[in-house]
Computed example of a mutant assay.
Amino acid sequence: MSKKIRLGILGGGGDSLIGVLHRIASSMYDSYQLVGGVFNPNYDDNIGFAEQIGIPTNRIYKDFDVFIEEELKLPEDERIQVVSILTPNFLHFPMAKKLLESGFNVICEKPMTTTFEEAQVLQETLEKANTIFAVTYTYTGYPMVRQMKEMISTGVIGKVQKIDVQYYQGWINPIIHDKEKRASTWRLDPEKSGISCCVGDIGTHGFDMIEYVTGMEVKTILADLNYLYADNKMDIDGTILLRFAENVKGVLRTSQIATGEENNFTVKIYGDKGGLKWEQENPNYLHHLTEDEPLKVLKPGHAYNSAFSLDGTKLPPGHPEGIFDSMGNIYKGVAKAIRKEKYHPGEFPTMKDGVRGMNFIERAVASHQQGNVWVEVK
Rank of each mutant, 00 (worst) to 15 (best):
K249Y: 04
R363W: 02
E78F: 00
I163K: 08
M209E: 14
K336F: 14
E262Y: 15
S367H: 11
I330E: 09
G194N: 10
L295M: 07
L289W: 14
M28S: 05
V135D: 04
A335M: 09
Y343L: 14
E362K: 13
R79T: 04
D325F: 09
H368D: 13
P56D: 10
L310Y: 06
N173V: 10
T140Y: 08
K268E: 02
D164L: 04
P317E: 09
A119Y: 02
F39L: 01
K128I: 00
F265D: 11
I85W: 06
N282G: 13
L72P: 00
L100K: 03
N40M: 09
V66H: 08
K332H: 13
V160R: 04
T115N: 06
A183T: 01
A366F: 14
G48S: 09
Q169Y: 00
G301E: 07
K4F: 01
Y331F: 15
P317A: 06
Y227P: 03
P283C: 01
D311W: 15
Q123P: 04
K128H: 12
Q370H: 11
H288E: 10
E261Q: 13
I338P: 00
A119D: 01
I202K: 11
M209P: 03
G260I: 03
A337R: 08
E279K: 15
H287S: 11
W171T: 03
L225S: 08
G250C: 04
E362L: 11
D272R: 02
I107H: 08
P283G: 07
D201Y: 06
Y168K: 13
A96F: 02
D272W: 07
G19E: 02
T254D: 04
L74Y: 05
W278V: 11
E118W: 04
G215S: 06
Q81R: 10
V355E: 13
Y212P: 09
M112V: 07
F64M: 05
K110M: 10
T254K: 02
T87R: 05
M95I: 10
V267K: 08
G203N: 01
D201E: 15
P294D: 15
I152V: 11
G12Q: 12
V156P: 06
P320R: 15
S102M: 08
E293H: 11
S196T: 04
T113I: 02
H22A: 01
N284K: 12
T350Q: 08
L228W: 05
Q161C: 11
W171G: 02
V373I: 10
T214M: 00
E70G: 00
L126D: 09
I176N: 05
P316C: 11
R187V: 10
I107C: 04
D311H: 14
D224T: 14
I240Q: 06
E291A: 13
M216W: 01
A245I: 06
L99Y: 03
G200I: 03
K128S: 12
K268W: 02
N264K: 09
N329T: 00
N264L: 12
Y331S: 04
N282Y: 13
F133K: 07
A230P: 01
